[in-house]
Design a protein around this nucleic acid. Structure first.
Lengths: 334, 334
DNA sequence: TTGTATGCGTTATCAA
DNA sequence: TTGATAACGCATACAA
């Protein structure tokens, strides 16, 4: 079970066994290396990472603090981070902390005990609290790396997604599809992210050459049915829109219903686009065009920063990308 | 940064400092304890859990291997597990492994190095592979505890959710609402889980006193629109149904659309129920009645088993529960 | 109640 | 190339 057992079985010293099994391959003859590997194999030996970490002062471990695993953003960040980290042979430890449940500072303090090489703070919706910043400063002082995904502080690496850019891209993609009279269903229940979205939609329309007179904006609740009603109004109005963009995928599904209720074919007659790419696209026969904000890539990036050797705080923005599906495809509108 | 620093600042030996800061409070005078705590506080000291684990042979750590963080089941299990574990002062490490990406045996081997006190295998869709079982056997041999959520092997603790029981409960709940002519939309794309569901629906109907002649079953693809079409057929048939149960929430949303298309009010005229409780209930103005399979509770349970001292393999089943919302409420149908 | 000494499993240093 | 030994940070048996 320990390195000593392996060494004894292979009839070598622990030092040699350690060298043979460690990552970099220091001078060990192929013969003994083989014996040691065989011994380790037959014993089912797994190196004690704790002991290793005790010496090296840090472990091949990344800690991530996330507010909610159930939200698409949180889950995606973890998924992306874990995928990258595992490919790099590292282990991820998780902790949850949101403004309600537990305080992030405590979580970090506990995780700090494992001497992770980095801490990733994901999905914090508010600015980091003072105790958290203190805790992270301690961690950083001992050589740890701190990466935020989303909100962050000035001293740390940060990965952000951009609602605004995603919205801009979306309008460009829609314009390229030939849509130009655009109904906009904004979400009154969102905060800054929602405003960024609307800002991007309008800016994107402008730079795509759509005059603002051809944009009709309606504020709606962030619910499916409310959006359906809003979409119905947009379709009723005299100067009929030829596409509808909604602030969330859920709302876009409502809009899709409205389009079909009006006897129109989504995509061909009226384009419909959501935002967030959070809806199971297989769940609707008419695939929903949406914008993937890149949360999963953000997790991936966060891990990348985690391994960076730069000393100044890095700030990366993940590019959102448009996912064109049938609901806004003129060519294959079903 | 180390216990030695704290001890020096508090002018005590490391042994005393260790005693003062350790969990159980062995004999340490209040005065020195105070000094030590103050020193630790001012230094931002966090105990080195690796060193501690090196001595104790195991760490306050639970490892969870999950197939996909993005699926509701995986995310929920992690959420539930983390919540419980943190309340118990433990840390969770995660690894992903599905049949596609990486093999679970490797993941377990790596995690084993951290000497976690338990490993939770969640969301394995196939029976455990031989290498995985070997790996887990090694872990168990060293005093580790293995808990499966979902599929498992005979030697280990296991937590299961029951599609069948959920379906039975659902029929009882619907019957209690007064529904009795039931259209059933089964999902031909699911495997055993789907058969369990149908089995439960029919058994539940029988035990709720609904003759099988009043149950109409249609097989449909697992998509929203396919289910909508199926629901439309059910509503068209002469002996009109007064409620529709669908194998998934996504399909139930399609059924909801069909009900409205028919000019009927969901809940009051025709009840609609999904399964899985995976849909954001706020997303639809008409809340969708569904069955929560209890994945999150399963994660919670898994942690509980993790801490159990019983030596025989435990097997727990999480009770699913019906979430009655407006789509199948006669009283408040909107 | 407190301090000293020993050991946990591993890696790194230095000799052989 | 290999082995003996020190060291990592912490917890505990034992001595004071």
């Amino acid at each position: 079970m320990t390195l000593g057992d392996v060494a004894r079985l292979a009839k070598v010293s622990v030092a040699t066994a350690s060298r043979a099994l460690s990552a970099g391959s220091p001078r060990v003859s192929e013969a003994t290396r083989g014996r040691i590997a065989a011994a380790a194999q037959s014993l089912g030996y797994a190196p004690n990472l704790s002991a290793r970490a005790t010496i090296l002062g840090s472990s091949a471990l990344v800690a991530v603090v996330v507010s909610d695993f159930l939200e698409p953003a949180g889950a995606s960040v973890v998924e992306g981070l874990v995928a990258r980290a595992e490919a790099a042979g590292m282990i991820v430890t998780v902790a949850s902390a949101d403004d309600v449940r537990g305080d992030a500072a405590t979580a970090v303090r506990r995780l700090r005990g494992l001497q992770p090489s980095a801490v990733v703070m994901a999905g914090m919706t508010t600015a980091p609290s003072a105790p958290l910043v203190t805790e992270l400063a301690h961690f950083r002082g001992l050589g740890g790396r701190v990466v935020y995904v989303g909100q962050g502080d000035a001293d740390s690496d940060r990965v952000a997604v951009s609602h605004r850019d995603g919205a801009v891209q979306l309008m460009a993609a829609l314009r390229a599809q030939g849509y130009e009279r655009c109904g906009v269903i904004a979400d009154e229940s969102q905060g800054q992210a929602g405003r960024d979205w609307l800002d991007g939609i309008l800016a994107g329309a402008a730079s795509a050459g759509i005059p603002s007179a051809m944009m009709t904006t309606l504020w709606s609740q962030g619910e499916r049915e409310a959006a359906r009603a809003s979409a119905a109004r947009l379709l009723d109005e005299r100067a009929g829109v030829d596409c509808i963009v909604a602030a969330t995928d859920t709302m876009a599904l409502g809009a899709l219903s409205a389009v079909r209720d009006a006897g129109l074919t989504p995509g061909r007659d009226v384009g419909v686009a959501g935002f967030g790419d959070t809806v199971d696209a297989d769940g609707v026969v008419v695939g929903l065009t949406s914008v993937n904000l890149g949360w999963e890539i953000a997790g991936d990036c966060a891990f990348g920063l985690t391994r960076s050797s730069l000393t100044t705080p890095q700030f990366e923005t993940v590019a959102p990308f448009v996912v064109l599906r049938a609901s806004a495809l003129r060519t294959t509108g079903s």
